[in-house]
Design a protein around this nucleic acid. Sequence first.
DNA 1: CGTTAGCACTCGTCGGACATGAGTGCTACG
DNA 2: CGTAGCACTCATGTCCGACGAGTGCTAACG
Lengths: 349, 349
Amino acid sequence: MAERERPELGPRKGAVLRAVVEQYVRTGEPVGSETIAENAGLGVSSATIRNEMAALEELGYLKHPHTSAGRIPTDAGYRHYVDSLPAGGRLREAQRRLIAGYFAEAIVDLEEVLKGSVQLLSRLTQYAGLAVPPSANEEPVVRLELIDMGPTVMILAVGQHGRVDKHVIDRPDGVDTQTLARVERRLQGLRGKTYLVAQARLLQLAAEGSKEEHDLLLHVAELLRVATQGEGSTHVVVGGASNLADEAQQMRRETLRRLFETLERETEMLAVLEDIGSGQTALNVTIGAEHPSTQEWEASIITAPFKTGDTTIGTIGVVGPTRMDYLSAMASVRVVAKRLSEMATELDQ
Amino acid sequence: MAERERPELGPRKGAVLRAVVEQYVRTGEPVGSETIAENAGLGVSSATIRNEMAALEELGYLKHPHTSAGRIPTDAGYRHYVDSLPAGGRLREAQRRLIAGYFAEAIVDLEEVLKGSVQLLSRLTQYAGLAVPPSANEEPVVRLELIDMGPTVMILAVGQHGRVDKHVIDRPDGVDTQTLARVERRLQGLRGKTYLVAQARLLQLAAEGSKEEHDLLLHVAELLRVATQGEGSTHVVVGGASNLADEAQQMRRETLRRLFETLERETEMLAVLEDIGSGQTALNVTIGAEHPSTQEWEASIITAPFKTGDTTIGTIGVVGPTRMDYLSAMASVRVVAKRLSEMATELDQ
DNA sequence: CGTTAGCACTCGTCGGACATGAGTGCTACG
DNA sequence: CGTAGCACTCATGTCCGACGAGTGCTAACG
């Protein structure tokens, strides 16, 4: 990311920008030079602030709704603000307690933990929580079953870390209970292999086996493929979207509708998140115009990867309006991702 | 329901009310006597319409935002309108095609069909689709497994109609792989019993067995209980909620937020739907003030039960603003519920 | 040269006055 | 009972001026 591309501005301009952003985030009103002069504790007069603000506007960090109004930050302004933030933001005591309380409960199912964490984030920040769960690629398969359900057959796969994928198919012609049992027995050989490996192995087996087996095995392979490639199955976990509809969030109606639409279409949302979270940084902030989607929503997304040991397995974060309390939201996301990683690492053993 | 409690009004008042409702639903503007006189084809002057409207207001079916404005329907007005609607509403050709197209695909998993149907309804009506899936009570259990996942144990139940429930627990002290396998073997005896019966049977078994078995069996019973009682697990299926955020829907911001909040809390929403859908009618309409929740949201809910054979197994419907196109929405819900029932009946065999 | 006080200027917002017109309610008449 | 006519109400739109927040600029100061 553009870590230090921006000019340094000098300490006072930075302080002014920072004060404008924080004031604007707090009140939602354009902020004037007087306010800054009084509250920011810079010990200079409003006239000086005005000069600084004019300069900041020149640089593209602030803008004017109209001549006689105060300034509001541009997306670039938020960006600079975010980049200049100290690394370890503080959480409020109440937030700390919420987090501690949640992770104190002994939870054992990663999927459940993720849902809970997303809810937690949405409550911590008052924005919407998001998560991309681990893909099944490297997860060992512990069960693989063909279940006779009368006119249909259910294919069921269970992974070592708790994922369960199922798919119901029409019973292929000429496949009776015996055949199912026989094929299921053959599937036992795949236990312990990862989803990816099992999938490849299935394609081989399908090629070797008889006609009926062939079809069934292909269906099983397809289920594993969907589970790994995610296109239908890797759900994006969303929580607290109703927070965004809050008056105080003052998002435009049209904008809001678009955001909700995308949040419902999981594959689309997944693409956006993967796009955004591709940086290897521990904390990822995308502000408004920096991405086509967030631009359309006038929104920002903060994400962090979570890991087992040293390998990233998923992403968690929040979406909110560009006028967002970045400091607090970033701290929340960072801490929750950290705790989540610890928990996932522990579960992994 | 209040099928024919309301006075009959006489044909002309009925026609006027109907015209007002339909005009208002279309435009969202209070409607005046002139408009009705011109468009409703009653062949009387606006003055006469005015008299009728005054009478309808007296009866509580219409109201005035202010003196010099047109009239809008009250909740009672919508109710009378809905009750006087002909039983079989027509669908537009495009809608017919959407429905036919959807059900033409051979789909075999009831859960998937439900999700799809809810999406379908939301697209047909431009409101949000809703469904309560079948409870597991009378569904036979086809698999019941204890899966060794290292530090944890996954309990997995599969039902005859395709439901899959899972729960991951910490491995109880002193339970090794052998114990798990042994207990799992004992569980095989429950195959073919319904969730309810299996649950009761498990409590018996738990009482008889050894200490370790006891704990495990209780956990299994608990999973079945949650699956049947639904409190955590019977999800309400929601689709197309973003439709409600549309400008055209003109729902108040605060109202919208509340509705979204409840849509996220599945148990709460489930309670509302059960409350509302308790009538045995084939099509159930709850309008604004008729239920505390819908009143709070200034919304209406249309639901219909869907069945296998003659027994109701679930509910499907839509939520939209009180100012809703009842005619079209009712027709959509009715038809989709009917098709869904046919499909479910077929799957059931 | 940076900082600041002072001041003219801009422009959105608020409130009042007024015209407009949609829509009503009533009355008198056919 | 239906209708034409008409006075009346009242929300909406517009114009106007007062107000004031906030700016940009200039000149003076250390």
